[in-house]
Nucleic acid binder design. Structure first.
Lengths: 128, 128, 128, 128
DNA sequence: GTGGTCTAGACCACA
DNA sequence: GTGGTCTAGACCACG
């Protein structure tokens, strides 16, 4: 299993799981239709409480990243429901704002900040 | 006062204050040497407890954004002590990673993400 | 419990706790992964307010000495993230300066000062 | 005047003055019998409150570093009253302990710590 | 009057 | 049960 979790970071475990699943999807390691490990299996693999995994899955489902088929397992969804581009941009802005502020606070230049973000994007391949 | 706070966001109030102060500094609305509102005054303005403001200030001071002089008041600092560039970049990467992942999750293209970040940066003026 | 606290020293209680924890870690009495007493338990043992312990723990966590896992407990961390040697030396200098000044003020010779510091270091074992 | 003060460090101003006077004495820049600037003059030079200077002088006098002659000014004393060596060592130990702990916390080796302290001592010249 | 520390006690998120 | 946040209010150090 590609997921790993570090209980000692202070970051809640369920958020670590969410972030890693999103990351795997963005990078193409998980594709629409792929089966997710069951709550109980993932919990036992990661040696954590099933409730924690359930919560992560619940929120990932709310966001449209995965989809649970009652009695049939959980799968990677084909993406969040078609939001208008304007809405997607609107949701993204606060984070863009934050990355800009923190970068400046670290005395990085505009070019450096943009380039570092772009580097991370390149790590996910294509152009889409 | 330029600060406002929303107790019902779930985001801790002291973090909201921190973010807004950093933002004001990055945007140039607050400059090195400017006096910050006193803990008690800001607390009464925002209708929150002084301890909450104190905590926000405490962490901002730890980060080198502001400086408190006991008995004197609190001021905008001239920036965190000079960390090596490599260290500053190291600290910035996790956030760059996150903005990349979330942007892709929202089906934004690489160019769109980079451009949105750059727009926020431009709002802060110069190039440095 | 190895911790003790003296409220009448003038030195803030939360700093006393911090110093003692650091000391225990440096001496090897606390090792990476060891569980720290819970905030509530330590507070009741020391007959002080839980918030005071929480504050000590909060700052120790910021410094990378311990790590809190919400809902789980608090543990001794495996050390602060790798700062560059140059940065670590830079942070240490002011204290080295102070020990030098105070030692001379007490009319101790250079050799005596160095030796006293070395004695304390030897109490922490190895060479690393 | 060799003294300078930075109100924005968080460190109380009266402690900054104390530290600098002790440092100047340890380095030989101030010698026994030298006249100290008057409270009022130093306060006006440093643009700070006379009460702050007075407090610094008061504590320096208690420690035997300077001596005030009522109506006649303040002078550098010829050293703290003759404490037994054992007593001077006893007073020095807590600081030696602290420098050892903090150095180890910064992952410096025993040799490095001792050498850094010795470097600061050398800056003060002789052997006494 | 300013910030810093401590206490007391409530409520929530996490595991 | 654990840590995290917030409120309320007291007392002290500093300038």
């Amino acid at each position: 299993m590609f997921l790993h979790v570090n209980p000692s970071t202070g970051l809640p475990i369920y958020l670590q799981i969410q972030a890693q699943v999103k990351q795997a999807v963005a990078a193409g390691a998980l594709r629409a239709g792929d089966a997710m490990p069951s709550v109980r299996k993932l919990a036992s693999d990661l040696r954590i409480n099933p409730n924690t995994v359930a919560r992560a899955y619940l929120e990932l489902e709310r966001e449209g990243v995965i989809a649970a088929v009652p009695g049939g397992g959980t799968f990677v969804a084909d993406g969040p429901p078609g939001l208008l581009k304007a809405e997607r941009v609107r949701r993204f802005r606060p984070l863009a704002r934050q990355v800009a502020v923190e970068g400046r606070q670290l005395r990085l230049s505009r070019d450096e900040i943009v380039q570092l973000v772009d580097e991370e994007l390149k790590a996910f391949g294509g152009k889409s």
